[in-house]
């Protein structure tokens, strides 16, 4: 319910932003900066880069604000742009150099589905998440951390709802296995 209200509010703010309201942009930034930064950090595995790309995402959102269609949810649109910014960054980085092995220090505050009991601490989860393949990790985080529905995830990633569900399920399975293995060792 709370999420719906937030979503409705974001829609109003986005429409005001398209009309040129700076205040609406400030509020959108306040509402989306943290989740976008965390999402980008989870993709890049580098907090500083995540922060840079978050800023780039807001710039891109600004340039492309007319691509937001009034009435549609704002978060999938913003996360879609963030993903696009990340992919562009990855392509241009790949041309210059290999990926730096980053740390996965940044983790969201929200506990993931059924994992809270399994987790002694966030660092262990961070370490376990490292072992989960990128596409599955992304689906896990988008659903269990940022609360997107599988349909929204499918539309963001260009996969079917079922495939999004499967990726997330397999990601959680991998996470469980990884935590168990680390716990046993």
């Amino acid at each position: 319910m709370g999420q719906d209200v937030a979503s409705e509010r974001l829609i109003e703010l986005m429409e005001a932003y398209q009309q040129g309201s700076a205040d609406a942009f400030d509020q959108i930034f306040g509402a989306l900066a943290v989740p976008l930064r965390n999402y980008l950090t989870s993709l890049t595995r580098d907090r500083a880069r995540g922060e840079d790309l978050m800023q780039e995402t807001f710039l891109q959102m600004h340039r492309s604000r007319r691509t937001y269609m009034p009435g549609r949810p704002v978060k999938p649109w913003a996360f879609g742009i963030a993903r696009n910014v990340y992919l562009m960054h990855r392509r241009s980085t790949a041309r210059r150099a290999k990926y730096e092995a980053g740390t996965f220090e940044e983790l969201p505050e929200t506990p993931t589905l059924g994992l809270a009991e399994l987790l002694p601490d966030r660092q262990e989860l961070a370490a376990a998440l490292k072992d989960v393949p990128e596409d599955r990790r992304e689906a896990v985080l988008l659903h269990h951390v940022w609360g997107f529905s599988f349909r929204e995830i499918g539309e963001m990633l260009g996969i079917s709802e079922r495939a999004a569900k499967l990726r997330s399920f397999r990601g959680i399975q991998g996470l469980r296995t990884s935590i168990k293995t680390e716990g046993a060792s």
Partner: peptide
């Protein structure tokens, strides 16, 4: 495809 976050799945 040009609208962020509103793609059709590759399968479809």
């Amino acid at each position: 495809e040009g609208i962020p976050g509103w793609r059709v799945s590759t399968k479809q």
